[in-house]
């Protein structure tokens, strides 16, 4: 699919439509970074399809100069499954949010991931309903006061990463809206992955839930608040004088204080491995939450498994090889027939 002759720029992926998110919305940064990495893939623009559901994030396809479809609430993974299962050569991207993907569309997200359909799912998580003006979402923290929870939310939240891992995701990553470099790198990794690539993007809603992720967005607090995952590297965070490592024993994570020069591996700190066959390790990582732990950023898990659309295409090819191209006349005359003279 990659074509060396394809020379596109970020601008080629912008449409003539006015972008209508609120000033300061994290979506602007995500859009710019997606448009920036697209040309790198060497794929003709007409082979990209962006599919979204309903919500602020789901306006995304209108601003991408590719093929796109703004569908109905929560169902984007299913529409995209239809596109990818019938045209596996297309590069399909699903854009969803925490409400769209994990509330009304939780079922479709689960089954898309389970089937390992070869597409990217970008879930913008701002922990609030924006387009309907500020109700709590399924990822909102317990106690959060919103229009629909004046006394504080009494819903325990769902964690997108744990959800994806629970659905046997083959690729799970988390990145941050304003961290251009990390976001782009994560998108590249998601694109390279064969199978469902699930990416949670921590995204700020300046109107209804401002600063939800400020600790990992702000460069000053970030080095301690975020745990940047790098394959083969120990789980270490914090700068000089504040070094911390993550030890994982029997699936239970704990924080280890580290001296500035101390060898983290010798201190029992876990070494990141994206390719564990069991999701248990990634699940332990996913349980790291503020304020007791740093928030992991990066690729939690990346394993190989045949993709649904690939297996479906193989079945079609094999059926034709085995039975020959479908013959309508033969089908209608199969089994018992009789002729009236």
């Amino acid at each position: 699919m990659a074509d060396a002759a394809v020379n596109l720029t970020q601008k080629d992926f912008a449409t003539d439509q006015d972008v209508r998110w609120c000033p300061g919305c994290g979506d602007y940064s995500i859009l710019a970074n997606v448009q920036r990495v697209m040309p790198e893939f060497g794929i003709p623009r007409e082979n990209f399809v962006f599919i979204s559901g309903i919500g602020c994030s789901s306006r995304f396809p209108y601003y991408m100069n590719t093929y796109g479809m703004h569908t109905i609430h929560g169902r984007a993974p299913a529409f995209a499954a239809g596109v990818k299962a019938s045209r596996p050569e297309l590069s399909v991207w699903v854009v969803t949010g925490d409400g769209d993907g994990l509330s009304i569309g939780g079922n479709h997200l689960l089954h898309a991931i389970r089937r390992n359909i070869d597409y990217q799912i970008l879930l913008f998580n701002n922990r609030v309903y924006g387009l309907t003006k500020g109700q709590y979402s399924p990822t909102s923290r317990i106690g959060m006061k919103t229009k629909s929870t004046p006394d504080g939310s009494i819903d325990y939240p769902v964690d997108p990463i744990k959800f994806a891992l629970g659905a046997s995701a083959t690729f799970v990553a988390r990145t941050v809206d304003v961290d251009a470099k990390h976001l782009q790198q994560t998108l590249r990794r998601a694109h390279e992955h064969k199978g469902t690539a699930f990416v949670e993007i921590l995204q700020n809603c300046p109107v209804f839930n401002d600063n939800e992720w400020i600790e990992v967005e702000n460069k000053k607090t970030r080095s301690e608040a975020a745990l940047v995952l790098e394959d083969g590297q120990p789980l270490v965070t914090g700068s000089k004088g504040q070094r911390r490592g993550i030890r994982i024993e029997n699936g239970i994570p704990s924080v280890v204080k580290l001296g500035d020069e101390e060898d983290p591996v010798a201190a029992g700190v876990a070494v990141h491995n994206e390719r564990h066959d069991s999701p248990a390790y990634a699940f332990a990582l996913a349980s790291l939450e503020r304020p007791n732990f740093p928030i992991p950023i990066g690729v939690f898990r990346s394993v190989e498994r045949p993709a649904y659309d690939e297996m479906l295409s193989n079945q079609v090819t094999q059926a034709i090889e085995k039975r020959g191209e479908g013959d309508l006349h033969a089908l209608l005359h199969s089994g018992d027939t009789w002729t009236v003279e």
């Binding site: 479809m69 299913a78 499954a81 239809g82 019938s86 045209r87 079922n107 191209e325």
Partner: peptide, 29 residues
């Protein structure tokens, strides 16, 4: 009838079933 090029998809629910079909139509099937 895969030999007819027919792709069947047993969806997770009725909504996904029609959604995949519409997605396929958008893709030209």
């Amino acid at each position: 009838y895969r030999q007819f090029g027919v792709r069947t998809f047993q969806a997770e629910d009725e909504i996904a079933a029609i959604s995949t079909a519409i997605g396929a139509s958008f893709a030209g099937m």
